[in-house]
């Protein structure tokens, strides 16, 4: 809280004719291409970031469909052999009474990925259309997406642990199904999609509004 400045008149680096490095926060004169401190490539606003966001988003969605259709786990025991999709596996767990674990799986593998697709689409559309959303709200959504997204990987790790552990020849074996690959890809693609955002653009719409209202009053 030691840094000077107040919420009403925040000057951005771009307004000051500077460009800030997103990796190390150092500022340079506008037009500098590469940060002299950390070597990161810099742009004042990455206007092509939304294209990358949409490309990764689409790739993630395409990988997410087979991830739900194909089996995630193949369980073979003495008496039976069974293939479980993500949702099927969770339903199975709920039948056995492990509601907590079923809930974790459903949240990590269905609720989080789906809400992530929607949240990223909302952010990208609101930037493209210039919707008047509060930047605080948009940054909040963005930070949640960035923070939570990684946790979807949990289901892939569960498959990895189970199939290395449950290798009791004859009695029970668990092997991973093809959905584990597409699900992992889907998580990785959506993480890349969220990382592609230039979050500074969330605040520009607000700044433009303020400038316009200033011009009208003077």
């Amino acid at each position: 809280m030691e840094i000077a400045g107040n919420d009403a008149h925040v000057m951005t680096a771009r307004e000051a004719g500077l460009v800030g490095c997103r990796r190390c926060a150092r500022v340079w004169p506008l037009g500098t291409q590469v940060c002299g401190r950390c070597g990161n490539r810099m742009t004042s606003r990455d206007t092509r970031s939304l294209q990358r966001v949409w490309a990764w988003w689409l790739a993630g969605l395409m990988a997410y469909v087979p991830a739900n259709l194909y089996p995630m786990l193949r369980t073979r025991t003495l008496v039976s052999s069974q293939e479980d999709t993500i949702v099927g596996g969770a339903v199975e767990l709920a039948h056995h009474g492990s509601y907590g674990i079923a809930l974790v799986i459903i949240v990590a593998s269905v609720v989080i990925p789906l809400s992530k697709f929607m949240a990223i689409a909302y952010l990208a559309i609101s930037l493209q259309r210039g919707l008047k959303a509060s930047p605080h709200q948009r940054l909040g959504v963005y930070e949640i997406v960035e923070y939570i997204g990684r946790w979807s990987m949990i289901d892939v790790f569960v498959v990895a642990v189970l199939s290395s552990l449950v290798q009791l020849s004859g009695v029970a074996t668990i092997t991973p199904g093809p959905a584990s690959l597409t699900f992992a890809l889907s998580v990785i693609f959506t993480m890349l999609s969220a990382q592609a955002f230039d979050s500074r653009m969330f605040w520009d719409a607000q700044a433009e509004d303020r400038n316009q209202s200033k011009e009208q009053t003077t």
Binding site: M1, I3, V10, A13, L18, G20, A25, V27
Partner: peptide, 30 residues
């Protein structure tokens, strides 16, 4: 320019006033 810092999330520009150890300087906007 090395006495300035730009918030990586929202591009707000500040002059650096390093806080005491254990304290944190946060962006006033985001």
């Amino acid at each position: 320019l090395s006495a300035l810092i730009a918030c990586p999330q929202c591009d707000a520009l500040y002059t650096v006033a390093p806080p005491e150890p254990g304290q944190r300087a946060t962006c006033a906007r985001c």
